[in-house]
Design a protein around this nucleic acid. Sequence first.
DNA 1: GACAAAAACGAACGGTCGTTCTATTTTGAG
DNA 2: CTCAAAATAGAACGACCGTTCGTTTTTGTC
Lengths: 206, 206
Amino acid sequence: MGSKGELTRQTVLEHAARRASQVGLEGLTIGRLADDLDLSKSGLFAHFRSKEALQVQVIDYAAERFVESVLRPALTAPRGEPRVRALFERWFLWPRAGTNSAGCIFVALAAELDDRPGPARDRLVQAQKDWLEFLANAFRIGIEEGHFSRDADPEQFAHDLYGIMLAHHHASRLLDDPRARERAHRAFEALLAAARAGAPRPPHTQ
Amino acid sequence: MGSKGELTRQTVLEHAARRASQVGLEGLTIGRLADDLDLSKSGLFAHFRSKEALQVQVIDYAAERFVESVLRPALTAPRGEPRVRALFERWFLWPRAGTNSAGCIFVALAAELDDRPGPARDRLVQAQKDWLEFLANAFRIGIEEGHFSRDADPEQFAHDLYGIMLAHHHASRLLDDPRARERAHRAFEALLAAARAGAPRPPHTQ
DNA sequence: GACAAAAACGAACGGTCGTTCTATTTTGAG
DNA sequence: CTCAAAATAGAACGACCGTTCGTTTTTGTC
């Protein structure tokens, strides 16, 4: 199978993903990528046949790595609350999995693509929906295990938890707040406490 | 005083801010702005003397408009919880204040600038710190008024509240989730409920 | 209404962009 | 080792980028 070609393609995607989390998908540049990797512009370009294709593949690559770095390892944690905690903890570590301390590429791309239609956005939306669904499901298992109240709403939990992650990203990366980690953990514990107490669903929701 | 010049400068900034919330500060283009506004490239350029100056002024412009659209109106609400609620409600409306239904420019720019040093980033950081401080202060007043527990942490509240806003932005703009508004409100009510009950500060924080 | 100041224009610059084409080198199966 | 296929290189393209400069038009004051 395409051994050499596939290998450089992966190398390019790894580097492109790292850069995209800093400069965005639109900020990616074929020439710059080629320079960084000591390839010719046309040589690199040949692996993808358009910039848009490269952008889409960057998202797919990041999604694969996210599964391997966050989702799959968390599955080794016991069902229920421990697994939810594992997902939370793994999420903080995962941007650093790629050597340098960049931000989460999905947070960066979400803001960039949220009003730019196209295949890249479609891929990102699917990845994010999968992630929220995964969170909701981990929480749902926690209900079955008796860790959380039966009145709690798994999708609301996933939504709120992701909000905590976004707030942490903001506080830690933009504001350089040294307490960001502590704030995120406190918010997380409060969310879990509410889930145990049984955050009531609103009375009139159809 | 600079009547005509200042007027077109404002027109340019208004349009640039709207575009920046879609394509980012780096995605802004002198030529495109000039076309949109029926100006010549050099004519528009003369108002700012570099692209970086334009970017900085866009942020300042957006910050001024945010104060007028969100902060100042909220001050007419009664001190304490009602004012906190007013801030929350106003925040949802404010991107739509500019005619079209773009996202919050600060959310877009936060992700773009969080790892790109420079004057634009510095301005954005200050604006965001001011905003969080304003939220914390509104909450602090709520404690004094007896609406919230004395044990609650105002800065933690501001952090958590902004997380709810970020999650809403994500759910509504990227995921097109029709329940986004409802989710945000539920999270907000839960946050207020916890603040009333007295979200306990962690035992060993110096 | 004259006239300096301010504002807007138009053309041009060097650079970089994504992309195409052709040529060269490298790979890997027989 | 052979040789087609795959991978990479190099040069060139038209388009647009931010910026500069000299000119023309518009503004507002006396």
